[in-house]
Amino acid sequence: MGAIRFALIGVGKIARDQHLPAIAGNPDFDLVAAVSHHDPELDVPWFATLDALMASGIAVDAVALCTPPQVRHALAVQALHHGLHVFLEKPPGATLAEVETLRAIADARGRTLFASWHSRYAAGVDLAKAWLAERQIRAVRIVWREDVREWHPGQEWIWQAGGLGVFDPGINALSIATHILPQPFHATQAVLYVPANRDAPIAADVAFTDVSGTQMSMNMDWRETGAPTWDITVETDDGTLRLSVAIGHARLVLPHALHEGPDREYAALYARFARLIADGISDVDVAPLRHVADAFLLGQRRLVEPFVE
């Protein structure tokens, strides 16, 4: 089998910063086209719509959807009906039900659907999972704080219904937690701080518990003006684990051990996608999105000052 003929749908910041370098660095993929509302100025043909790409005669095997989640479902349905394999940026959709629909379509058509969670591929995450599997968890604290003006400038969609607000980065923490913690957990209460002029929260506090009654807290805030904090701390019967995930690298601190590594998340995602296609299977884990949905179901909405960029 030759290289997977690949098209990128949506050529915004995440596509340019992460997807394009990862595609270029993986010989299993050959970027043959892009779909964007504006000329992305790439060295491949571009089209304003997926239908226009399909009508062009360019052979495509797979696509990555890097659009806002509110419009991703319709594009994924189109792609699957055209017989394409589909890579979904996180979150995989605006709702749980639409992702399950995509899974059913992919299964029926024998196509690969990949719900990607890039933070699970950060350095130290698998080591953290293995270390925690042999210990008793006593408490978990997640702190995910950053300046929205720095990290999400001009992204109006993120403030709209379905855009998740502060949970858009926060879901990265939940993707790690659902991967490394040895027992399932669920939300018990949540407070969502919503600007008076927006649909989605700018900050949130969520409490969780697992089947053993272990307490877990999560604090997210987009009003952080200093250095960002992306930390997961787990207290165990054998000491404390701290995993810090940052742009460019990740750092895992264990009792008497330190592990650090560079950012290879998207390279690993594309390697995983190629293996899934070769094996003829899908990978659609909705656990992180389910926790976000539960937080919105349980959440007390508290209005805060309007957000003006």
Rank of each mutant, 00 (worst) to 15 (best):
R16T: 14
A108Q: 14
W117N: 11
T225H: 08
E100N: 05
A52S: 13
R242K: 12
W157T: 02
A257I: 02
G10W: 06
T229S: 07
L243K: 00
M216L: 13
T229N: 10
G93R: 00
A139D: 08
V140G: 00
P92E: 03
Q300E: 15
Y193D: 12
I142T: 07
A3G: 14
D221C: 06
W144R: 06
A52N: 14
G12Q: 06
V245R: 01
G154P: 02
D279I: 02
V11Y: 11
P27I: 08
W46Q: 04
A97V: 07
A52V: 05
H38D: 13
M218D: 04
P45Y: 06
L80M: 10
S116D: 14
L297K: 14
G2I: 05
A271P: 00
T95V: 03
H152K: 03
D231C: 09
F273W: 10
A257H: 12
L269W: 01
T229R: 07
I277G: 02
V253G: 00
Q300S: 09
L65T: 14
T225E: 14
P182W: 02
D43Q: 11
E156T: 10
E156P: 00
W230M: 13
D43G: 11
G213K: 03
G163C: 03
R120T: 12
G12V: 11
I176K: 00
R135I: 03
A33F: 07
L50I: 13
R103E: 12
F47V: 07
V35E: 02
L20G: 08
D61L: 09
R72C: 02
D168E: 10
D30Y: 05
S282N: 01
P92H: 04
W157A: 01
E305S: 15
N197I: 15
V71K: 00
D51Y: 02
N197Q: 07
M220V: 11
V99W: 03
M1Y: 05
A55G: 12
R198E: 15
P195Y: 10
A3P: 15
A204F: 11
K129Q: 11
H291Q: 11
S175M: 01
L20P: 01
P21M: 06
V148A: 09
D279N: 08
S56R: 05
P255Q: 06
L258T: 13
I4A: 05
P195H: 10
D294Y: 02
H37V: 15
A278I: 02
G280R: 03
R149G: 15
